[in-house]
């Protein structure tokens, strides 16, 4: 009897450990219509009954650049916009999305490059360089800010929910919820499975009604690249 119990605990621990090591197979956003600044408190109360692990506050900044007419890269498939995202729970990384290409930059220069003397130190994000030195090509038009968001970890780390109010030039714009499904397998099928699981979670928890944005860039794209793709999808329509 006791032997059985011990093995059970071991299994649970292992699953927990594998969830924390795993990479999210999906990060999806829900945009809610008719949202107000209070929606976040309503959601907080709703999720509190699930006894989540609180991940603390978070914020993000999405800069939207437009190609300069005179010097725009002339391509048929380009929409002429460039987006730059920085989230504070991954402070060293930033991602820039332009024409379905996500450029990942880091302010944490890899040791091999630093040791080889390639870096001068105190690196910035690509967004800052665009603003400082590439103004002739890209002009900053809008800055969308998310402030004082909440992060929750549900079901032993299987789901991570991040809710946040979005402001444009200080005015409330929308309320978005980022839902991540974490699993240990990286195969292609799990993406479809993740969307299913997230859809059922949304129904089960009776989250506010909204649209699910599930754009991804490619199978190999990293986490932030997918987040920015979905954010852009969410705000475009």
């Amino acid at each position: 009897m006791s032997h059985f119990k011990v093995s059970y605990i071991l299994v649970t621990l292992m699953t927990l450990a594998s969830f924390t090591d795993s990479y999210p197979t999906g990060a999806f956003l829900v945009i809610t219509k008719d949202a107000s600044t209070n929606s976040i408190t309503t959601l907080h109360d709703r999720l509190a009954t699930e006894i989540p692990k609180m991940l603390g506050r978070w914020s993000f900044e999405l800069k939207i650049f437009k190609a300069n007419n005179q010097s725009a890269p002339q391509r048929d498939n380009s929409d002429g916009f460039l987006y730059d995202l920085a989230v504070d729970y991954d402070p060293t990384k930033s991602v820039t999305l332009v024409n379905k290409t996500a450029i990942v930059t880091t302010t944490d220069v890899p040791g091999s490059l630093a040791q080889a003397g390639c870096s001068n130190g105190s690196p910035d994000t690509l967004g800052q360089i665009l603003q400082l030195k590439l103004q002739s090509l890209w002009t900053l038009r809008q800055v969308l800010k998310g402030d004082n968001g909440n992060g929750y970890e549900l079901r032993g780390g299987e789901f991570v929910i991040r809710a946040i109010n979005v402001f444009l030039h200080g005015n409330f714009k929308n309320f978005i919820v980022l839902i991540e499904h974490h699993s240990n397998s990286k195969s292609n099928k799990t993406r479809e499975l993740s969307i299913q699981k997230i859809e059922s979670l949304v129904e089960e928890l009776e989250l506010p009604k909204g649209r699910l944005c599930t754009d991804t860039l490619s199978d190999g794209a990293d986490y932030l690249s997918n987040v920015i793709a979905q954010l852009v999808q969410a705000f475009q329509t």
Partner: peptide, 17 residues
């Protein structure tokens, strides 16, 4: 001098970036 560090993703090359 301003700088940043680009991490080229799997399906990209520095030229496409």
């Amino acid at each position: 001098i301003v700088e940043s560090c680009i991490l080229v993703q799997k399906d990209q090359s520095i030229d496409t970036v």
